[in-house]
């Protein structure tokens, strides 16, 4: 009898407490800071737009900070954010190593951090949410293997080597090349995720190896640069596979100028990130690493999509 009473009191207490915390939530929406490296690529522009839209939809306060790809400015931004003391920080760093300092600052201040897209190489983060870039690299390699069943000489345009996005995409692609005997990597160089550099580097690669039949670029800007190089050299036979499915690349795939691109799903990434942040703030357990799916975009897949619509 007595035990039941105690239980009842405890239960009532918990309910009141949770009701109080819920009303606190309702009064004051969670304050989330979003710190991004740049808004100069389509990918981040989409992330930013979706972040604002989704934050409004789920009712959180969102403040966006960017740093023009400058790690020093990023640190200053992090300090500004911490002086404002938000509930949680969503962070995609300019450089995974330089990010360590930023994350450690937040750790010291006791503000939780969730990284997305690019990760941090140090400090404590609640969770890291990203496209499974290594898987994406593998998908690109597998696609090239599929369209060249008899083997091919391939080239690789790497991204900014200090970023783990570039490293993972390259690792996935090279894994497939290594395990496939008749695919030979004849040229490999960084073009820093830049279209102009992608064009120049690929022009030079074609001078050295006119036997190249396919090229994998770790982002679409470089793939589009390689495409311009192929057009200028009259080499429209070369199969170009990019990464990110930027609007220009999708147009190029549709026109047959590029063979394929790997679509990250930026909307899915930022939605997952915000969901994870809210779950964490509500005291739920969250996974340390969350991989977001990717999608191979080819002329056929685009045709199928239009048909479905």
């Amino acid at each position: 009898m007595r035990a039941k009473k105690v239980l009842g009191i405890v239960l009532a207490g918990t309910l009141t407490l949770s009701a109080m915390s819920m009303s606190a939530m309702a009064d004051e929406a969670p304050r989330i800071a979003l710190l991004m490296a740049s808004m100069t690529t389509e990918f981040f522009v989409q992330i930013e737009a979706e972040a604002r839209a989704y934050a409004e939809e789920v009712g959180v306060d969102l403040e966006v900070y960017t740093c023009d790809n400058d790690s020093a400015k990023e640190l200053a931004n992090m300090e500004t954010i911490l002086s404002d003391a938000p509930d949680i920080i969503l962070y995609t760093p300019n450089d995974s190593d330089a990010a360590t300092v930023c994350v450690e600052k937040a750790n010291e201040a006791g503000v939780p951090v969730i990284t997305f897209d690019r990760g941090s190489n140090g400090g404590e983060v609640v969770s890291h949410i990203a496209s499974d870039n290594e898987l994406g690299g593998e998908m690109a390699g597998e696609y090239i293997r599929e369209i060249f069943p008899d083997g091919a000489k391939v080239a690789e345009l790497q991204g900014i080597l200090a970023t783990n996005v570039a490293q993972l995409r390259g690792a996935g692609f090279n894994k497939i090349i290594d395990e496939t005997d008749n695919l030979e990597l004849v040229a490999q160089q960084s073009a820093n995720f830049d279209k102009s550099e992608g064009m120049t580097v690929f022009e030079n690669m074609l001078q050295a190896h006119d036997e190249i039949e396919a090229v994998f670029a770790a982002n679409d800007e470089m793939a589009l640069g390689a495409m311009e190089a192929c057009k200028a050299a009259g080499r429209d036979d070369i199969k170009i596979v990019g990464f990110d499915a930027s609007p220009d690349a999708v147009v190029a795939v549709e026109a047959g100028d590029m063979a394929a691109t790997i679509a990250q799903l930026p909307v899915k990434i930022i939605d997952t990130t915000i969901d994870t942040a809210i779950a964490y703030l509500n005291g739920e357990e969250v996974e340390k690493e969350i991989g977001v799916e990717l999608q191979l975009v080819t002329q056929e897949s685009l045709a199928a999509e239009t048909e479905a619509e």
Partner: peptide, 15 residues
């Protein structure tokens, strides 16, 4: 210089 280093397949780090 940029051109010859690529022709020689010198890695980006060394370039």
């Amino acid at each position: 210089l940029n051109n010859i280093l690529t022709l020689l397949d010198v890695s980006t780090y060394y370039q």
